[in-house]
């Protein structure tokens, strides 16, 4: 599903964010990416949805060599990935329903397919009853559920998340994490960078630890392993 071969990332200012990362993530896996601040987790995530290009090395994702693809193919790759962020990235002027439908509209889904599908995913994240509300009328956890619904609505094979619980309190974080687990149980691959020690330790999923731009640990039923 996702494979990296000796991937390096040097930013324009000379920072070496990743130094020779090789990894293989199979279809249907649930992977936590952990590590101290500045280790290169976000960079690792960004390379996967082609927000950044590797300086060196190859990245394969769902049949594409995304280190080689042309600019105009990026949208095609993005359609097979759902992305979730710490800051939700919802459009404040659109309702919950519109925020989710937006993701279907912009890839030119036939209109009559949009409504049933949006209502489906809103059902999945338990927000059907708030479909007409604006993001600022929702709690942080609810906003993240909308973002998750948007990431899921086009049926991507992979969900990538960069600290999705970073802005949420422990209870709400658990709620979101359960949703990710449910999505993963339905067959979607999940890759999540996180600082949430408690969750990583109790879920016991695959853990990839990055330090100083290198993978220092990769365990199938891993633990968080840091005391931050």
């Amino acid at each position: 599903m996702i494979e990296m071969f000796d991937v390096w990332k040097t930013y324009a200012n000379g920072t070496n964010a990743l130094k020779g990362v090789s990894v293989k993530i199979d279809k249907g896996e649930f992977v936590y990416v952990v590590g101290p601040s500045g280790a290169g987790k976000s960079t690792f995530i960004k390379l996967m949805y082609r927000e950044e290009k590797p300086t060196k090395g190859q990245i394969f994702l769902g049949g594409f060599n995304i280190s080689k693809i042309k600019e105009r193919q990026i949208p095609i790759v993005r359609r097979s990935i759902g992305v979730v962020f710490q800051d939700f990235k919802l459009l404040p002027t659109l309702t919950v329903y519109e925020n989710v439908a937006f993701a279907m509209e912009v890839i030119e889904t036939p209109t009559k397919l949009i409504k049933p599908r949006v209502m489906d995913v809103l059902g999945l994240v338990k927000l059907k009853h708030k479909a007409k509300m604006l993001p600022n009328e929702l709690s942080g956890g609810e906003q993240q559920r909308v973002a998750l619904a948007r990431a899921l609505v086009n049926n991507p094979g992979i969900i990538i998340a960069d600290e999705p619980t970073g802005n949420l309190d422990p209870d709400t974080s658990w709620e979101i994490m359960k949703l990710f687990d449910e999505i993963n149980n339905n067959g979607t691959t999940v890759v999540m960078a996180t600082h949430n020690r408690e969750i990583v330790n109790s879920m016991r999923r695959r853990v990839i630890a990055i330090e100083g731009g290198e993978i220092v640990r990769d365990e199938l039923r891993g633990e968080y392993g840091y005391e931050d």
Partner: peptide, 17 residues
């Protein structure tokens, strides 16, 4: 820019944007 950023994230083509 946020709107454009999200459109790109979910796979809208540049011309669509």
């Amino acid at each position: 820019r946020r709107e454009i950023e999200i459109m790109k994230l979910v796979g809208a083509t540049n011309w669509f944007i």
